[in-house]
Nucleic acid binder design. Structure first.
Lengths: 245, 245
DNA sequence: CGGCGGTTTGATGTGACTCAAAAAGAGTGG
DNA sequence: CCACTCTTTTTGAGTCACATCAAACCGCCG
């Protein structure tokens, strides 16, 4: 298998887990010219306000999308893992309303926006796949707004941990019980709209309640039902059922 | 013009403001069979968790999408106005992760999800239009997460008012300075993650600063630059520039 | 003129923030 | 394997923004 195909495969697998592609459509995607790039920890992939001409598919590592205010406060909008097309929005929106940066050493491939649009134009199934992907993204954003807008500190942190767990599980990096937390508590704080100190205290509270344990970066969910209950976590919003068509 | 076409026209106009459609594509949309429905104030159009088979296009009135917690707390995720296809997500996501309800007397047309998908399959320009619409939606959700996650009470309220103003302006219901606020303060509160009381006090603060005035439901922006500054409002996230293609 | 949704006010409580510093890990080089 | 540094997590103390509760007020409509 070519370098291209092997780095693009995780995304195809993610799409086909939801709904199989025709051989022709799959092949067309895997034949796209790509450019593999490596990043260190906390490196910028895209800045807010830029006009990117390429999309970004994560091959390895963890990145986040964020928006920031002039006073320095930052909101992380989403975390992305291997197989995620982070910047699908770049294909059709000309100006980036979020920045993208890494949280671990990361490998990513860049795909030309025009190639994505051509694919969507030629293959309705790809148009639908990209659209579905964007809809799931949007659904997650809605849940995050609910999270920071209405839940208490402990609930927010619990919810985020469960989401991370679920998403890592879908790419084989968690067994649903135990996973390596790919980000620091300060980053979690930026994602749930709390201070780092209070995020830490919320995690401690979850530990003391017996819902989870941590060993360094490793998180062990001790009592999933209890954790899901405090977080009111319901994975419907991740839309694991796939698209209607 | 048929009843169908006249109620569907506002959406076509919104789409074509961004990028013109081919005559054929336009005609195909306007020929869709639709069902016009009327709702009163605070009526439910869709409940969380349902499996709708039709999308919903607002002809007249204001509706919101929301998510709620078992303790009764509610987060409004978006407001929608005439010409908005509120429930485009229903076309491709099988289960609704948000509810939809009206805030004013509302007229809406229901379009079969399968018709939407057929249109996207047959006309790549429609597939792109729907995808773009969803991307803009997602961008607004990201901004709302930033709003509730990182801004202070006064900033949040100012930002929401400016967004409402900008969106009403694009459909001719505001001149950019003066508009009729289509929702109550309690609803604003649910949208910005504050209590109704504190939302009220934040509005008062904006009034006392001279940034805006209110006469009943009418809002008059007295000092747009000042208001935009406190809100750090920048309409880039509404993507008025339209799609790349 | 009475009733009702919506707005406004006041008083009080508290969850989360800030600042600052200590403790614990993780990585690097001698 | 230990010393050193840098990052991340944890602790403590004091403060403030926003929540809650309850009641008054206002404007609109029948």
């Amino acid at each position: 298998m070519s370098v291209n195909a092997s780095s693009l495969l995780p995304y195809v697998e993610k799409i086909e887990r939801r709904r199989p592609l025709s051989d022709e459509a799959r092949a067309a995607f895997l034949a796209l010219p790509v450019q593999l790039e490596s990043y260190g920890t906390y490196q910028s992939i895209l800045n807010e306000g830029e006009r990117p001409d390429r999309c970004c598919l994560i091959v390895e590592g963890v990145v986040s999308r964020y928006k920031s205010l002039k006073n320095g406060r930052r909101q992380i909008n989403s975390f992305h893992y291997a197989g995620d097309m982070v910047d699908l929005q770049a294909a059709i929106l000309t100006v980036a309303d979020t920045g993208i940066r890494t949280h671990t050493p990361t490998k990513a491939v860049r795909i030309d926006c025009e190639d994505i649009l051509d694919l969507a134009e030629k293959y309705p199934e790809w148009a639908r796949a990209f659209w579905f992907d964007t809809q799931v993204d949007a659904s997650i954003f809605r849940e995050w707004t609910l999270n920071v807008g209405q839940r208490t500190a402990v609930e927010r942190v619990a919810h985020l941990l469960l989401e991370i767990s679920a998403r890592l599980e879908s790419i084989g990096q968690s067994d649903g019980k135990e996973f390596v937390l790919p980000v620091t508590q300060a980053d979690l704080a930026d994602a749930v709209g709390l201070s780092a100190v209070h995020t830490n205290r919320s995690i401690q509270q979850l530990r003391h309640s017996g819902a989870l344990r941590t060993h360094g970066r490793k998180v062990v969910i001790e009592n999933y039902p209890a954790l899901a209950k405090v977080a009111s976590f319901d994975r419907t919003y991740l839309h694991p059922e796939g698209p209607r068509r």
